[in-house]
Design a protein around this nucleic acid. Structure first.
Lengths: 170, 170
DNA sequence: GCGGTTTCGATGACATGTCAACAACTGGGT
DNA sequence: ACCCAGTTGTTGACATGTCATCGAAACCGC
């Protein structure tokens, strides 16, 4: 690392573009979501993950792992969503420590109302701006990076990632 | 919007991959940065933008616009960085309302110490995992999306973006 | 030069996220 | 049966980000 390899022009362009896109896309999607559906992005993600589940319910830690959130963050966020009537907490039958998070009817209604507009926004600001080849490339490249970051460690460095578990032994 | 066009399999893969990559990359880069250099990503970004400037100093609002931050956020953050001795605020000669943010020697030292490791991490976890074609594609695609999101409005929708100014009249 | 309007940056209240500590419980070894 | 290390989810203190508001200064048409 004595002579750092800086990014060349193309790499720099990709990296800066990525970061700028990230920020702008986030701002815009969040803005539309809150305006059109009264949900924040985190709200949407929670509801969306829950609604994709057979029962509309998940163990708290299972949900946290899927979302790559810490349990603490999820717990705080659920408290707020619960107060708004979007989700409920139930005791877990098989594990006395556990909580199960469940979608309420209001929660289901909220996500169903929000989804079409949100998908449309994702198309409008991202997907529909890309060629099919670019969509393919983006899928491939992001998956490779994700694989790398979730690899069992000792990979090219001794570092681990992810808030809590979600590791190799999941 | 009556019959929402959902994402097809490839689009879904790209979108989910993007979001997952985003999250994991952020966590990892932030983790390494704070561990190796004692800086958060926002800290790094502020110092980095300042250090790229001829005089190591910028008007507060100029910096906010470049970073796509609200003035308020930047002001709060600068207060904290100032307390750590990384930056200083100076009065602006040409505008009595204004502040100029300047890098201190400690700030310059911090960014110079942090940069090589951070660039290496960006390579390790992203850039070096991509083919040259993918780097090129990522650059092209992100720039197109950024263009779209910063376009003068009335574009395909009547919506504007960005925290404060940075708009069409900039 | 003077009022009205806008811009600049700071601030306080509040929302959200992180981190460390904790109690309750599980499961395995003995 | 019992202990104990590990796991689960919650909590409180704190860091960070957002939003509305504010005073000061600049700008602008007159």
């Amino acid at each position: 690392m004595d002579a750092p390899r800086w990014l060349d022009e193309r790499e720099e362009r990709a990296w800066r573009g990525y970061r700028r896109m990230r920020r702008l896309l986030d701002l815009e999607l969040a803005r539309e979501l809150v305006q059109d559906a009264g949900l924040s992005e985190p709200d949407y993600d929670v509801l969306s993950d829950l609604s994709e589940t057979p029962d509309q319910r998940l163990r708290l830690s299972e949900l946290a792992d899927r979302m790559l959130w810490s349990r603490s963050r999820l717990s705080h966020h659920l408290t707020r969503m619960q107060q708004r009537g979007l989700v409920t907490r139930e005791e877990c039958a098989s594990d006395g420590r556990g909580s199960v998070v469940a979608l309420t009817p209001a929660g289901r209604q909220a996500i169903e109302a929000a989804a079409p507009g949100h998908v449309a926004a994702v198309r409008r600001h991202l997907v529909d701006l890309l060629t099919p080849e670019e969509v393919e490339a983006l899928g491939a490249l992001t998956h490779r990076v994700v694989e790398h970051l979730t690899a069992p460690a000792g990979d090219d460095q001794g570092r681990r990632v992810a808030p809590t578990s979600a590791g190799p032994e999941a």
